[in-house]
Simulated scan of single mutants.
Amino acid sequence: MADEYFVLVCDDVPHDVVLTDPGVRVMDVVQVVRRLTGLSLWRSKTLATRVPAVVLTCVPEEDAAAAVSALHDAGAQAETRERPEPYFPTR
């Protein structure tokens, strides 16, 4: 029994939100990153200026799309990426 693996199945594949370009309105993007992540202003600015940066990880597709839309509205370029399936080795 100790050698059994269990695979959790869920309907929604987790997504990451990746900031690819902060654009020209960097402080607006920093405010959006701060609102999305809950980080301090300094850490949000550091995250927004070092691109490509993963802003959110393992979020549902709807939340990722909303975050990307908020970043686009602030003038940034962002995208969602599906997280790859975990690899479970078998014998």
Rank of each mutant, 00 (worst) to 15 (best):
L39N: 02
A53M: 11
K45T: 07
L71I: 03
C58S: 11
A48R: 00
V51A: 02
R35Q: 15
V54G: 09
V55S: 10
E79H: 10
A48Y: 02
P60M: 02
A64D: 12
Y87L: 13
T46F: 05
V55L: 03
R81L: 09
S44I: 07
H72R: 14
R35S: 12
A78Y: 12
L71D: 00
L71N: 03
V32K: 06
T46E: 15
V59A: 07
V68I: 01
V33G: 11
V33A: 10
A64I: 13
V55E: 03
L41W: 10
V32E: 05
P60N: 00
A76F: 12
E62R: 13
A76G: 06
V54H: 09
R34D: 00
L39Q: 10
E61N: 07
V33H: 02
R81W: 12
R43D: 15
S69A: 13
H72W: 09
V33T: 12
L39E: 01
A66R: 10
T37P: 04
V51S: 06
V68K: 03
C58D: 14
V55R: 01
R81F: 05
P89S: 00
A53P: 00
T57E: 13
S44E: 06
D73F: 00
E61A: 14
T49M: 15
E62M: 08
D73A: 13
A70R: 10
E82K: 10
G38S: 04
T46A: 09
R34W: 01
L47Q: 04
T80F: 02
V55N: 04
E82N: 04
Q31P: 02
C58T: 12
A78F: 11
P86I: 14
P84M: 12
A70I: 04
P89N: 01
V33L: 09
R50W: 03
S44V: 10
Q31L: 11
R50Y: 06
L47M: 14
T80R: 15
C58A: 15
R81S: 14
G38P: 04
P60G: 06
P52F: 07
L56P: 07
L41Y: 07
H72K: 15
A48H: 03
T37Y: 02
R35E: 12
W42S: 05
T90N: 14
S40Q: 03
L56S: 04
R81I: 11
P89H: 02
W42E: 01
P86N: 09
K45E: 00
A53S: 05
A66H: 01
Q31I: 00
A64Y: 09
A76M: 01
R83S: 13
S44W: 06
G75F: 09
E85M: 04
L41K: 03
Q31S: 15
P86Y: 04
R34K: 14
